[in-house]
Each structure stands twice: as structure tokens, then as C-alpha cells.
Nucleic acid binder design. Sequence first.
DNA 1: CCTACAATCCCCATTTATAGGGATATTTTG
DNA 2: CAAAATATCCCTATAAATGGGGATTGTAGG
Lengths: 221, 221
Amino acid sequence: MRNKIKVHIADDHKILIEGIIALIKTDNSLELDGFSLTGKELLDWVSKNEIDVLILDISMPIIDGIEVLKFLKRKNIPHKTILLSSYDDVQIVKKVLQLGALGYLSKSSASTHLLKAIKMVKNNEQYFSNDIQKDLLHLYGNSNSKKRNFKGLEIDLLEPLTEREIEVLKLIAKEYNSQEIAELLIISKHTVESHRKSILRKLNVKNSIGIAMFAVKHNMI
Amino acid sequence: MRNKIKVHIADDHKILIEGIIALIKTDNSLELDGFSLTGKELLDWVSKNEIDVLILDISMPIIDGIEVLKFLKRKNIPHKTILLSSYDDVQIVKKVLQLGALGYLSKSSASTHLLKAIKMVKNNEQYFSNDIQKDLLHLYGNSNSKKRNFKGLEIDLLEPLTEREIEVLKLIAKEYNSQEIAELLIISKHTVESHRKSILRKLNVKNSIGIAMFAVKHNMI
DNA sequence: CCTACAATCCCCATTTATAGGGATATTTTG
DNA sequence: CAAAATATCCCTATAAATGGGGATTGTAGG
């Protein structure tokens, strides 16, 4: 192997980053090509550097992993990305697959899985945590035609929230009720309740807990 | 330095564990003395082995870092522990200090901080992330007498939840309402509502969102 | 200019959660 | 064993959230 695989890491947890760097050093076929602590740093990096594989934490503050993927897609920047997540959430997996990610790994996976994932993704193969594989199969059925390429399937993306809805969502997650949110945003309680309805529908959750959980998963709080 | 500092790591994220192991190997004064993926594994380990410094993830499933500290305290097992956390939550810091932890580090800290923390804690010195230091000073005022030892101060601990309350809490966080929880646990809806009341009071949160957020912060879902 | 959409507001009905109160049986623990 | 904690159930009442419906304004894009 003449050329090492250039790996870039984006995660707001420095300890995890430096841990992964140490792991990469243990494998002669890999080399580090920078790291980013925020989504913004990463976007700057990818526009200036050529990397082989990107390891991307899904939950970063401000610009999260999803937003990074959207940006890369919008700009038509080719990338081979492995998402790192604390949660095994099939909905999120569906979303990142649709946005062009090639791998999805839980942080609770063994590091050998990460090394394997890097090499597979480098070769344009998809890699998922075991648990996620099961969930995906369940979701998409198990006919051979469907197993081949998850990306080609119809995937129901979430309707995007408007800015106002995001404001309301954040306040909901901070334990404010509709009346309090109304006072904070200087609007009527009825309006807040309307936004609530829209958010529930768009996120496809059944109650405020679901809204708050969404906020947590996407590091919006 | 004749004897290396024996470090044990407890975290449910294998990737982080293996990362920290790699870091420890870069420092000659440190050596790994096992790791645990769950609170239970850790409790088994500490009852059989002698370690110098314990690096403990606060958010592990089932038996979390807090529970581990409580156990060690109850059994009067001496330990020098650094808590690792994703959040900089002053309330949690207060709690773990009261429970006998010596260090508290955010996962977003640099790994050099972790190495420094290990050495300080080994010498019975306290170590905190910068951000936390600020918050603690603010919390406890800045008179010299108070700065010296946080552990000696009155700290309002949260009342511990009972097992049943934890069951209910988890189901609340999974978006079930009281009626559904009643059916799942085969008890009356009234009972669920009673548990709800106790949980709200004990956690000192104002609504179910607060309950769900607590569940998230402690990785109970 | 017209349309679509976002943001705002309102009504009604129903369900759920919150907040008091209290009661009783079982389990844990000192 | 006795005391304390836990888990269970019930009542009443109010507050809040949910799920329909509809209506108006302003504005950005085609």
C-alpha cells in the first residue's frame, strides 16, 4: 500500500478526537489529515483540503453532523463519511444515508469496527453498526433487491422546521409551557399552540417529550 | 518514578475507552489497569483489584457514574475518581464532589487535561475543567475559606429515585403518557400519576420535559 | 401581480398533566 | 419486631396540551 488513507475527524469532544488519533497511529494504512472541533471548522477544512474519509460526530453544537452533510450535498462536494453517534436511531440513520453518508457507527462500538469502517468506506462500501443493520433490515424488509442499496430507496425525510418553530422548540425543551413561551416571544399563547401543532406534525412525534428529545438529539439546547 | 499510576476506565463507549487507553500508553508514568463497559463490571472490578485512579463516565446505562460513586461510598471503598461528562452541569458536579469524586472533566477538554487530572487526583488534589471552576466559584462565592474545600460545604443533593420511579421516568422519556405507562406496568393510572408527582418533586423539575431531560442527561433511555 | 408560505390569532372539544388531599398493604431495614 | 420506605390506589380540581377547524397579515419568489 503506497498511499495511506487520509482521515479527518470532526467532533466537539477533544478527548474522543485525540483518542481516535491515537488509534489511527496504530494502523499503518491510515494517517490523520486534520481534525475539527466544530462544524464550521470542518466546512472550512473540506473546502481547502482533500481527505479520503471523514469521521463525523452527529451531535456537534451549532452546526451538527446533519447540517454538515447538507452543506456538502448542496455544494456537490464528494465525501466518504462515517457518522459517529451516541444513539442508535434508525430515523437518523435513514436521514444521513439519504444525505450521502456511507457509514454509521455507534460510539459504543469497538475501535476495531471503526478501523474496519474506515477501510470499507474508503472503498465506497457501506458500513453500519450491527444493531443498526438489524433495524435497517427490519425497516426495509429483506428482499435482495432492497438490501443492495439503501440510498436508492424512498426515504421520508422530516419536513424542515421554520426559524420560529425552532425557537419555540428550544423553549419547549427548556421546560417552558405555552403561556411562558408566549410571554418570552411576545406573541399570543394561541400562536405558540399553533407552532406546537406544526412542530408535532413535522417531527412526527406524539407529544412535547418527543419535541424535547428531538432537541436533545440534535444538540439544539 | 518506580511505580506507574494504575488507571482504570469505565465508559460504555468503547471507542472512547480505547482512545484513552492509547493516550495512557503515550505517558510513561501511567499504566492501564483494566476497563469496564458498564457500572456493574466496574463494581466487580473494584471489589477485586487495587487501582490508583478511576476514570468514570457519568452517563452509563443502568448503573450510571452517580450510582457507582454511591456504591463506593456505601461500602467505604477508597477511590480517586475523575468523572467524565458530556455536559458541564454544575448541579451534577456538586453531587459528585459530595459523593467523593476528586475530579470532573468535560469530554470536550483536551486530552492533556485528562493526563494532568490523573496525576493531580493521584496526589489527592482536586481537578476541574476550566468552565466548571468558574461556575463553582460563582456558586460558592469567592471567600478564601470557601474556596479551599468544596466537599465540606452543604450541598443539596437530589433525593434518590426508587426503582419503580425510574421505570416510570424511563417510560415518560419514551413519550408514553400516564395511561399507557399504567398499561405497560400493569398498575392503575392513578399510581403512575403518584409516581409522576414524586419524580417531579425529587428531581425538582417543573414538568415532564424536565423528567425526560434528566433521563437523557443520565443516559437512562 | 399572484401564489405560496410563514407567522399570527382565534374557537371548540377532548385528553393529559399537575397539584392538593388521603388511605392501605408490602418490603426493607435498623 | 418496629419503624421507615415503597408501592399501590383513590378523590377533587385546575392547568396545560392536543387535535380539529378557520382566518388574517405580510412577504418572498416566480
